[in-house]
């Protein structure tokens, strides 16, 4: 049952991701991105990481992609003026490299195989909170400072009369 769902959502995630890069219309790509993010969230749920799943949807689907869509809407390139992608040598090479990368990760994944059964209690709010504020406190704080710097930078760049 779980394997079935894993395959299903995995396929949706991969398929959605492929669609994101192959669709011509950016709006369509953005919607496929949401689909991919949802599928990934579902995969988190399968690993009993409910908190991560919720956060994934709130942050990525609920906020980040909305901002993408904002940009697409504001630029609003008419469909007739969208650029036409052509297959070049670089692109073909890129696809081959990506294939090799996937193969390598599959090999790596096989070596460090995941535990068969999900560990309950790992994905709860409490567990994630504890992990963040004990083991990964430094990384967490550094990241928040980084984000703060980004926010201040954005304001400084956009508003010259600060």
């Amino acid at each position: 049952m779980e394997a079935l769902f894993f395959i299903l959502f995995g396929a949706i995630a991969v398929g959605g991701a492929v669609m994101v890069v192959t669709r011509r219309h950016p709006m369509v790509s953005a919607l496929y991105l949401i689909l991919t993010l949802f599928a990934v969230a579902a995969l988190f749920v399968l690993r009993h990481a409910h908190f991560l799943a919720a956060i994934q949807v709130i942050i990525y689907a609920g906020a980040v992609v909305v901002l993408f869509i904002f940009v697409i809407m504001l630029i609003n390139v008419p469909e007739s003026r969208l650029p036409v992608e052509r297959a070049t040598i670089v692109r073909v090479a890129g696809v081959i490299a990506a294939g090799l990368l996937i193969l390598e990760s599959a090999v790596l994944a096989r070596r460090f195989a995941m535990p068969k059964a999900p560990v309950s209690g790992v994905g709860t709010v409490e567990a994630v909170g504890r992990a963040l504020f004990t083991d990964y406190l430094l990384a967490f704080e550094v990241t928040s400072v980084l984000l703060l710097a980004a926010v201040i930078g954005a304001i400084a760049l956009s508003n010259k009369k600060l």
Binding site: A54, I58, A61, G62, A63, V66
Partner: peptide, 15 residues
């Protein structure tokens, strides 16, 4: 177990 977060996640979709 993420109750209210689920609400946030889902209602965030309405946008």
């Amino acid at each position: 177990n993420v109750g209210i977060l689920y609400i946030f996640a889902v209602s965030g979709m309405t946008v």
